[in-house]
Amino acid sequence: MQVLIHEMGKFGLVGGVCYAIDFLVSNLCHTLLGMGPLSAKTVSTVVAATFSYIGNRQWSFNHRARTGLRREYTLFVILNTVGLLIALGCLGFARYVLDLRGVLAFNLFGNVIGTGLGTVFRFWAYKKWVFLHPDHPKAVVNTGADQENHRPIPEHAGRL
């Protein structure tokens, strides 16, 4: 339970910074640059997700096993795409079903509700598939620059 609370705290701090990036970039793209709401949200999510990967890999889940950059990043991109689709679904529903077109609706449905639901999904998914527990069969530590130099993580490693 202590590890979960620790991970959630770090994930929350990284998420807060990335939320600010997402919010600012989406509003810049939508209100100042005139991009459509879905395009603006897509651009902002890509920028924020890049920062999120670095922060979560290097800090939030740095005690968890590494399974190779290619595998982790591929899964991270896929899961963030699902998170983006959740946010776009909320935003699209507000815009094209409810016909809510103001900046307040854009922020409420895209940046609060959509991002909030996507964040819950991403936290669960990162722990399950991207940043694995050291006991997981795919858990290895990269001891060199290439993927050939891996060794298993001791069972007790990664526990706080």
Results as ranks from 00 to 15, higher is better:
residue 108 L to K: 05
residue 125 A to M: 10
residue 98 L to S: 05
residue 92 G to L: 01
residue 68 G to Q: 09
residue 78 I to V: 14
residue 101 R to A: 10
residue 135 D to H: 03
residue 40 A to Y: 15
residue 95 R to H: 11
residue 46 V to P: 09
residue 150 H to K: 12
residue 136 H to T: 00
residue 92 G to Q: 02
residue 76 F to D: 06
residue 140 V to A: 03
residue 104 L to M: 08
residue 133 H to A: 03
residue 115 T to L: 15
residue 45 T to H: 15
residue 57 R to K: 13
residue 27 N to K: 02
residue 140 V to Y: 03
residue 72 E to R: 11
residue 99 D to V: 01
residue 2 Q to T: 13
residue 25 V to S: 13
residue 90 C to D: 05
residue 131 F to M: 02
residue 73 Y to R: 09
residue 86 I to H: 12
residue 150 H to N: 12
residue 137 P to G: 01
residue 100 L to Q: 05
residue 9 G to E: 06
residue 90 C to N: 06
residue 60 S to L: 03
residue 101 R to L: 10
residue 105 A to W: 04
residue 61 F to T: 01
residue 22 D to Q: 10
residue 24 L to P: 00
residue 106 F to H: 10
residue 137 P to K: 04
residue 6 H to Q: 15
residue 42 T to R: 12
residue 90 C to H: 07
residue 97 V to H: 06
residue 96 Y to Q: 08
residue 74 T to W: 14
residue 159 R to K: 09
residue 4 L to T: 06
residue 10 K to N: 05
residue 130 V to I: 09
residue 104 L to E: 07
residue 33 L to S: 10
residue 63 H to V: 00
residue 150 H to Y: 11
residue 102 G to L: 04
residue 98 L to F: 09
residue 57 R to Y: 11
residue 97 V to Q: 07
residue 157 A to H: 08
residue 121 F to Q: 12
residue 151 R to A: 07
residue 62 N to E: 12
residue 82 V to I: 15
residue 52 S to D: 04
residue 54 I to V: 11
residue 129 W to E: 04
residue 143 T to I: 06
residue 46 V to K: 10
residue 89 G to A: 13
residue 123 F to C: 06
residue 44 S to A: 15
residue 7 E to I: 04
residue 106 F to C: 03
residue 71 R to N: 11
residue 24 L to S: 07
residue 46 V to F: 14
residue 47 V to Q: 05
residue 132 L to E: 00
residue 66 R to A: 13
residue 4 L to N: 06
residue 111 N to D: 13
residue 109 F to H: 10
residue 138 K to A: 08
residue 76 F to N: 05
residue 85 L to I: 14
residue 28 L to G: 11
residue 92 G to H: 04
residue 19 Y to W: 10
residue 4 L to A: 14
residue 156 H to L: 10
residue 46 V to R: 11
residue 98 L to I: 03
residue 62 N to M: 09
residue 11 F to R: 00
residue 34 G to E: 07
residue 159 R to G: 02
residue 136 H to E: 00
residue 66 R to T: 12
residue 135 D to I: 03
residue 19 Y to K: 00
residue 36 G to T: 12
residue 157 A to N: 06
residue 41 K to M: 13
residue 50 T to E: 08
residue 152 P to K: 15
residue 112 V to N: 08
residue 149 N to D: 13
residue 118 G to S: 07
residue 75 L to Y: 14
residue 122 R to M: 14
residue 83 G to I: 05
residue 96 Y to T: 09
residue 127 K to E: 08
residue 125 A to K: 06
residue 41 K to P: 07
residue 108 L to I: 11
residue 26 S to K: 00
residue 63 H to Y: 03
residue 17 V to N: 00
residue 138 K to I: 02
residue 43 V to A: 15
residue 71 R to P: 02
